[in-house]
């Protein structure tokens, strides 16, 4: 089965992803996996099914001299993988998913993503106005969650297209707070 993937979630490189092509082939006794980072060579692995076990819903992968206890979850195109206190998010597309993604993104490609609440909370203050051009990292609004005020910042240079919340609004996790558009 052929996939395209985006590896992200490295907390020290917020917003950055690395594109990969992946091929997965299952045989009776092993997994054959080929990976290619964009612009790089194909790297091929054969992992015996004995080295890829699911124990109590957790994957134990014995690989390259290491034994990894891995918690992987997700469905559709979004997967989250935890191991050794590290976490990555992996977007995995096959043909069908690729098409769906491009439709969803539409003209927003290159415009940076909109500001979305990562957790439920309350809006304390909005620091920008409609039409403002923001630098990457510039504070957009302050949201209160878990007793603390959190500043939410723009992840790229964008223009504020619309502001969908006002101070004192309660917001849900995943709710879009501010719409951005690309700066021409």
């Amino acid at each position: 089965m052929f996939f395209e993937a985006d590896l992200g979630g490295d907390l020290t490189r917020p917003g950055q992803t690395k594109p990969y092509k992946i091929e997965v082939n299952e045989t009776k006794n092993s997994w054959k996996i080929a990976l290619q980072e964009e612009g790089g060579e194909w790297v091929r692995y054969e992992i015996s099914k004995d080295d890829y076990r699911i124990v109590e819903n957790i994957v134990n992968l014995i690989w390259n001299g290491g034994s990894y206890l891995i918690d992987v979850y997700g469905s559709g195109i979004d997967y989250t993988v935890y191991t050794r206190s590290s976490v990555r998010t992996v977007k995995i597309y096959n043909d069908e998913a690729l098409l769906h993604e491009s439709l969803k993104k539409g003209s927003l490609i290159g415009g940076g993503e909109n500001l979305v609440a990562g957790m439920p909370g309350k809006i304390v203050k909005v620091l920008v106005n409609k039409g403002d051009v923001l630098k990457s990292g510039q504070p957009v609004l302050i949201m209160e969650a878990m007793k603390m005020e959190n500043e939410m910042r723009a992840s790229a240079e964008v223009r504020v297209k619309d502001i969908l919340v006002k101070p004192a609004d309660s917001v849900e996790s995943g709710q879009t707070l501010v719409l951005f558009e690309p700066v021409k």
Partner: peptide
């Protein structure tokens, strides 16, 4: 520390999970 695990570990695991789901 945040990069002490090879990226391929994450990719292999996610790819097998996606394969199994499909």
């Amino acid at each position: 520390l945040f990069r002490s695990v090879d990226d391929h570990v994450f990719l292999i695991t996610a790819a097998i999970a996606a394969y199994n789901e499909k």
